[in-house]
Design a protein around this nucleic acid. Structure first.
Length: 255
DNA sequence: ATTGAGCTACACAGCTGCGG
DNA sequence: CCGCAGCTGTGTAGCTCAAT
């Protein structure tokens, strides 16, 4: 309870952005007496929080401006990058958009005035939209199961229908989820081919198994995805070249 | 001098650990 | 289980300090 109040007190002072708050005001906000506020301020001060108080009329309590910089350790460029790429859209599919929103609020509260304005500056000048044109996000009915498998490092049984319409069943080691142009993909280890990519919308059934798995030593999701994308691009180029030699292929390409 | 703010001494209540 | 001591958290009342 007290630790919670100490945190709240610190955040209130941060949000005041250097403006002084009286002990009475803080006491009213935190539902305790002013005496308790003074004790909490002592505790914060002992913990190294640079809080100071001014006596007399127009006096009050405030934090040393700029102290938060050393708290977060973030550079201006890092703040801009985080603010610009924090796109909540895709995260709502896996239940993380609320966490992102609350996290951004906390980050904003923890930033000093200058960095807070830089974050807003970046947000108003760079927006990342991962969705594609003219089509909504693909429905992935078993995304919850895939997500739990990825989070908990547990094997997942999959019923999958591939690009050619061939249905199959298998047990995979779900390494990670990727969203690209509003389409979810599962990167998973398989007994037959090692790491493979499954399109989320083609997963027709999924069940979380009790058995866990060990991620491959040094596995990097981003690197694995990039390599798969490159191989996919090569295969597609080859496929397009094949289609071009027939009239039917030309028509297909035009479609 | 007045006023409004922080600061401090003192007391109380509840919790916890310990010994009988 | 009970009583005690110590610790922690809290509130009240009065003091000190600075601006007007």
């Amino acid at each position: 309870m007290r630790a919670d109040r100490l945190l709240s007190l610190m955040l209130l002072l941060q949000q005041a952005r250097g403006r002084q708050l009286t002990a009475e005001e803080l006491a009213r906000r935190l539902h305790v007496s002013a005496r308790t506020i003074y004790r909490d301020l002592d505790a914060l001060s002992s913990a190294g929080v640079p809080v100071y108080a001014n006596r007399g009329p127009s006096g009050g309590i405030a934090l040393l401006e700029g102290w938060q910089t050393s708290l977060t350790g973030l550079t201006h460029v890092e703040v801009q990058a985080l603010s610009a790429v924090a796109a909540p859209g895709a995260l709502s599919d896996i239940g993380l958009s609320a966490a992102l929103e609350s996290g951004l609020i906390k980050l904003s509260a923890a930033l000093p005035v200058v960095q807070r304005s830089m974050a807003e500056h970046a947000r108003q000048r760079l927006h990342v939209d991962s969705s594609g044109w003219f089509q909504g996000r693909e429905v992935v009915p078993h995304l919850d199961v895939l997500r739990e498998g990825v989070w908990q490092d547990r094997k997942v049984w999959l019923a999958y229908r591939d690009f050619d319409g061939v249905a199959s069943e298998r047990v995979v080691d779900p390494y990670g989820l990727v969203i690209k142009a509003d389409r979810w993909y599962l990167v998973a280890g398989t007994a037959e081919r090692g790491p493979s990519v499954f399109r989320g919308a083609r997963v027709e059934g999924a069940r979380l198994l009790d058995e866990g798995f060990a991620r491959p030593e040094g596995f990097d999701l981003a690197a694995c995805w990039k390599a798969w994308c490159e191989r996919f691009a090569e295969r597609r180029a080859s496929y397009v070249a094949t289609l071009r030699v027939t009239e039917e292929g030309e028509a297909a390409l035009r479609r």
